[in-house]
């Protein structure tokens, strides 16, 4: 009985995929509304920035209207693939006592969340890509990546997904100590908005903010893959970026382990 056969973690993922897809389809209405919101956000930024670009004679800080369009269309895809909802989820679980069943399973709860995350991404990805294409066409985006950019985009995106998941899951563990992690979530969200390049491309922000974004994990979670696909980075900058992603992933992984152990210890000390 003891000792898990190799490949059975895969089986858990497969089962979780199937049941998650069922859950998502049970809430197709909510899913549709959520997708609409997802599409609306970049459209708003796009309209603002293309207007600004037009009023400044066609370009702001090296971004033409077409480049803004490309930036926000790609950003939408990257954001959709990297975002997580674990702040809410973790708080809800711990307050409502739904965490205990997860602890009683012979698998680390993080697998549950990774599987949920991937399933949701897979489902929404099929809607987000066409939406991005519509944006690219409608706003006459200019996008001519080289083959290297396209090839580099794939690992940059994958690592961004891993990094953002690990960082946000680890931060959400604060729910073990605080009954309300919403405050942390808010602070994080604001930082994220500016430092990960969601409001504007980082190149348009003051140098100090750019430095901060590069030193902290924010740029590597969202902006970096977008910049890569747009062909704004030299090969050495791309390599540095991937290196930064890997370093941050290792750091976040270590923190997750430590935070998890301490969190569970606390949870089981104060009562579940």
């Amino acid at each position: 009985m003891s000792g898990r056969a190799p490949g059975s973690l895969m089986e858990i993922y497969r089962s979780k995929f199937r049941s998650e897809i069922a859950v998502q389809f049970a809430y197709r209405g909510a899913l549709a509304i959520w997708l609409l919101g997802l599409l609306l956000e970049p459209v708003i930024y796009l309209v603002v920035w293309t207007t600004v670009a037009a009023s400044q004679g066609g370009a702001v800080g090296g971004f033409t209207a077409g480049e803004f369009a490309a930036y926000f269309a790609i950003l939408m895809v990257v954001n959709q693939l990297t975002f997580t909802w674990h702040f809410h989820e973790m708080e809800w679980r711990i307050r409502q006592g739904f965490f205990s069943p997860l602890l009683l399973r012979p698998v680390h709860p993080v697998h549950n969340d990774i599987a949920e995350n991937l399933t949701f991404k897979l489902l929404t990805f099929t809607a987000v890509v066409p939406a991005a294409i519509v944006l690219l066409v409608a706003f006459r985006a200019s996008l001519q990546p080289s083959l290297v950019d396209v090839l580099a985009f794939i690992p940059a995106l994958a690592l961004a997904m891993v990094l953002r998941f690990l960082v946000e899951w680890t931060l959400a563990l604060a729910a073990f100590w605080l009954t309300k992690v919403s405050a942390i979530n808010q602070a994080y969200y604001v930082l994220m908005l500016f430092l990960s390049g969601q409001v504007a491309p980082l190149a348009l922000l003051p140098p100090i903010v750019q430095t901060l974004a590069s030193l902290l994990p924010f740029r590597w979670m969202v902006a970096f893959p977008v910049e890569t696909l747009q062909g704004r980075l030299s090969p050495s900058e791309i390599l540095t970026g991937i290196g930064a992603q890997i370093v941050w992933i290792m750091l976040a992984w270590g923190l997750l382990q430590v935070g998890w152990r301490a969190g569970v210890k606390r949870y089981s000390a104060v009562g579940a």
Binding site: S15, S19, P101
Partner: peptide, 29 residues
């Protein structure tokens, strides 16, 4: 082992029972 609490729900809320069972099968190997 198992812990069953009369006032706590462990099955997934939104999916058919059999799907939850299948998930448990995979989780418990």
């Amino acid at each position: 082992m198992t812990l069953i609490m009369g006032q706590r729900n462990q099955l997934a809320w939104d999916i058919p029972v059999i799907d939850s069972f299948e998930l448990n099968r995979a989780i418990f190997g």
